[in-house]
Design a protein around this nucleic acid. Sequence first.
DNA 1: CATGAATGAGTTTTCATTCAT
DNA 2: CATGAATGAAAACTCATTCAT
Lengths: 195, 195, 195, 195
Amino acid sequence: MSLRREIIDVSKELLLKEGFAKLSMRKIANRAGVTATSIYLYFKNKDELLLALVEESIERLTSALKGAIDPSADPVKQLEKLTRTYVDYALENPQEYEIIYMVRPEEMPKYPREKFQQVRDIYEMIASIIRSGIEKHVLDVDDPMISAYTIWAQLHGVVSVVLSKRLDTRIPKQPFLDHAIDQIIHGFIIQRTPA
Amino acid sequence: MSLRREIIDVSKELLLKEGFAKLSMRKIANRAGVTATSIYLYFKNKDELLLALVEESIERLTSALKGAIDPSADPVKQLEKLTRTYVDYALENPQEYEIIYMVRPEEMPKYPREKFQQVRDIYEMIASIIRSGIEKHVLDVDDPMISAYTIWAQLHGVVSVVLSKRLDTRIPKQPFLDHAIDQIIHGFIIQRTPA
Amino acid sequence: MSLRREIIDVSKELLLKEGFAKLSMRKIANRAGVTATSIYLYFKNKDELLLALVEESIERLTSALKGAIDPSADPVKQLEKLTRTYVDYALENPQEYEIIYMVRPEEMPKYPREKFQQVRDIYEMIASIIRSGIEKHVLDVDDPMISAYTIWAQLHGVVSVVLSKRLDTRIPKQPFLDHAIDQIIHGFIIQRTPA
Amino acid sequence: MSLRREIIDVSKELLLKEGFAKLSMRKIANRAGVTATSIYLYFKNKDELLLALVEESIERLTSALKGAIDPSADPVKQLEKLTRTYVDYALENPQEYEIIYMVRPEEMPKYPREKFQQVRDIYEMIASIIRSGIEKHVLDVDDPMISAYTIWAQLHGVVSVVLSKRLDTRIPKQPFLDHAIDQIIHGFIIQRTPA
DNA sequence: CATGAATGAGTTTTCATTCAT
DNA sequence: CATGAATGAAAACTCATTCAT
């Protein structure tokens, strides 16, 4: 495996395990079995490395979602599938998912704003499914973009509550997730389905 | 104003503006017009200061919510009111709200676990409204706790997407919020209202 | 008890338990139940406090020794008694004894050199016993001062090895002490006794 | 010279001159002409540096002593030689000698206990000479270990009194040393020589 | 007699980064 | 492609001390 890959993987691992504050170039280097200096052969500086992490994580999430869509299927089924995939991917790849939101724009003022908005692809996918549902008259929505954004925001809320380990211990994870997804997606569909 | 207050306020301000990683005792002290040493007269160490911030922020959010509840009102109205208050408070006091979730348990292993779970009060409030709705036969829900938790998670998702400045610039904030709240609360109510 | 007394006692205790490096005004104050500021009402600064500790400790050791001497007794018996008392006192009051040697002149350049030489009293006592032994023709010594100094140095070596906890665990303390004292004092007497 | 060497040497120098309490990483670095950070390239932290100092000092003393022993020689002569060497080495290398005893176990709780007991080698050497004297019937001793330990403790007393600059100015150093060594070693030998 | 509030200088340590090789 | 040596800046924290009360 290339050293660049190794550095990225190790960084993600450390970022998730010890948090943003404790992620240091030296620790990454140690874990990767190289000198800290070597990181600079592949990344201009720490910010660029972080940017690469975020970019890759967003990219992986979106491609996981893209792979889950079958454009020929029923839009409602597509939405269900996409939602499930979103939650499953996030919970199966917590390091990838958390990294996307861990690095806040405020802390990285040098970052090109657009990089942070690659997330757009995600709700664009939701939006286009909704639009195709409208076309096929199985959905009735005023503003597909706002609806898509809403669904995404709700999904993010549910997922992040679980990942942040703030899930109340008295509440069983799986039933909560099932219930929440049902609430989000069917709540949306039922309401928006033409009578 | 007492120096203790000043330190807390300045810290919240800096925490929101520059993020967790760049919050340093010296910067806080400078901004408060005192020596870094003086902070230690009021807080044992940085962790205790951060803990104080989180505690106060949680406390303020919950008391804002408590103040918004009228137990004699219709449970459905209560839910609507609480939801609105939640979102309004979060958007009007972004520093208070973000601080609650900014400090991750992983990064603060010394924090008493319970402190992080004071957030429970929030969805306990939602749950008890739901329970009273069940008693009054205006709501029909299997598990009030899971339902409350779901509503809270969705609210958090919506709010945090706005606050994290990841809101797509093409999407107007207020309509999005209206739509999202409507989706969350009415989606829940309609579905759960006895026929 | 006066606060001055309390401060001195607490300081000695801390000095022995945690060592010179960790002795701080605040810790002393805490342990004494007062503010650090209060110490300055009784001692000009930390150096003066340390000086007071050393002075008092030397004073107590010398007066313990003085109390053990019976000038009318046989000089040899006096030497035996004095030696025993020295070792016993040091082992029974380790904090007092160690403090005398813990504060090195190099670390306290401001100290009046003479303060450190109050220890002289100790071997002056030994010397005068030796001198009376010479007068009474029970001892035969070239230079009573050098002999006294030698005895004192040897005693200090034995005592400090025990107190510094560097005594080999395989060696039983009491037999070692008995043997050492015997070696020092009888070795001296036998050799120096006129034939 | 390597920087590691330089750091150790400078540290010993400063430790002896200003004492344990005033030894700081920055001062060491300044004196060595580097940044404080550089010290951490060679020593994990301050404790490890101090440990290295103690270790090296013990090692040098013991090897000086080992070099002075001629196993084929008469045990009594060996003892005389060893004693002389001990005192000479200590007085010629005061920084090396003092460092061995300057760091108290209490102040360095993290130190491996064994490190402090490398000093054992010293009196083991004395003990084995005594044992060979017993075998050759030129010495008669109950417990060679206790005897060795006693001799060592006395030597340490004499040396440390001189090095601590508490030697009375009225007492000439060399005569005192000669007298003390004579007292220690011949006092022992005469008493313990079979009739 | 004692304190509470504050400070300035200092401590050890960690970090991102550079540069010559 | 990779390193070893080094640095300057900054971090959290501690300390002795002062001063007004």
